[in-house]
């Protein structure tokens, strides 16, 4: 994969970087609420609000 990535043009590298960042943001947008949901299910929801698990 690394060799393949080295052979691509700068324009494509920028394109792939933008895609990766957008995908990472969408990943976080899905994961954060789900993690909060799971945390609230196994812990005290008020503690989760404070960033703790108990």
């Amino acid at each position: 994969m690394n060799n393949k990535y080295k052979n691509i043009s700068v324009e494509d590298k920028i394109f792939y970087s933008v895609i990766n960042v957008v995908m990472l943001l969408s990943l976080l947008a899905v994961l954060i609420p789900i993690i909060q949901l799971v945390s609230s299910s196994i812990s005290e929801p008020k503690a989760v609000y404070r960033g703790k698990l108990c």
């Binding site: 990535y5 792939y16 990766n20 995908m23 990943l27």
Partner: peptide, 17 residues
Amino acid sequence: AVFSSRYKRLVQTISYM
């Protein structure tokens, strides 16, 4: 258009959740 197929699969699976 994601370059890495492993990253693509990860995003795809998590986005279905």
